[in-house]
Design a protein around this nucleic acid. Structure first.
Length: 195
DNA sequence: GAAAAGATTACCT
DNA sequence: GGTAATCTTTTCC
């Protein structure tokens, strides 16, 4: 039994390493990363358990983008956005937190919604709800999703999904830019009707 | 120092 | 569809 479990663990560890998205994935143009994160799995270790969501909705925040928290350069709050590709930028808004994955310096992808695996899929509909469902907190700000032990992103499995594009949700500045991406028809998408 | 603004959500009518 | 909740960071005097 022990031997079997050990062998199984070794194999799944190797498979996990093979499917985990690396630095190079995030070190690419932000819009491309935002699109390719759709369908990927976001895994968060919470104590002894692992929570997982299939990402269904993202938004890109660019360097030359008045809506981005990094627009005016590094501050104490946004310093994670200037970290390595794959760094988590988590910020607080009202009573919730929202999570981003950093791409290139000063740019990031906001994780707007995910279908929670093994639970109510719609409980991750919305950036604050996604973080709450996965157990992401402000303490995860600055964490490394590439090499870190708490958060990891796994490559999308399966065929290329059908992606829809719209303006971003809930912002005032640069509101017309088509920088929101989501899976067509997915129940966990937070604002299905925004064009 | 004080005040305003928010990449939101839940609950109201 | 509108609005209150809630609190940190940023910005302005």
């Amino acid at each position: 039994m022990t031997g079997t479990r050990s062998r199984t663990a070794a194999r799944s560890s190797s498979a996990r390493a093979a499917t985990r998205l690396g630095r190079a994935f995030f070190d690419r143009p932000t819009v491309r990363v935002a699109r390719e994160l759709l369908g990927a799995r976001l895994r968060v270790r919470v104590g002894r358990t692992v929570r997982e969501a299939r990402i269904v909705e993202t938004e890109a925040y660019l360097r030359d983008d008045p809506a981005s928290h990094a627009f005016r350069g590094p501050t104490r709050r946004n310093r994670s956005m200037f970290g390595s590709p794959g760094t988590m930028y988590v910020f607080r808004i009202h009573r919730v937190v929202c999570a981003n994955l950093v791409t290139r310096v000063g740019e990031a992808v906001l994780l707007r919604a995910g279908a929670i695996v093994g639970s109510d899929p719609a409980s991750g509909s919305g950036p604050g709800r996604l973080c709450r469902a996965l157990g992401i907190t402000i303490a995860d700000d600055g964490a490394d999703a590439v090499r870190g032990s708490r958060v990891a992103v796994r490559r999308r499995a399966g065929p290329r999904p059908r992606i829809r594009v719209s303006r971003r949700i809930g912002i005032r500045r640069a509101a017309d830019r088509p920088l929101r991406f989501y899976l067509a028809g997915d129940r966990a998408v937070s604002h299905p009707h925004v064009a």
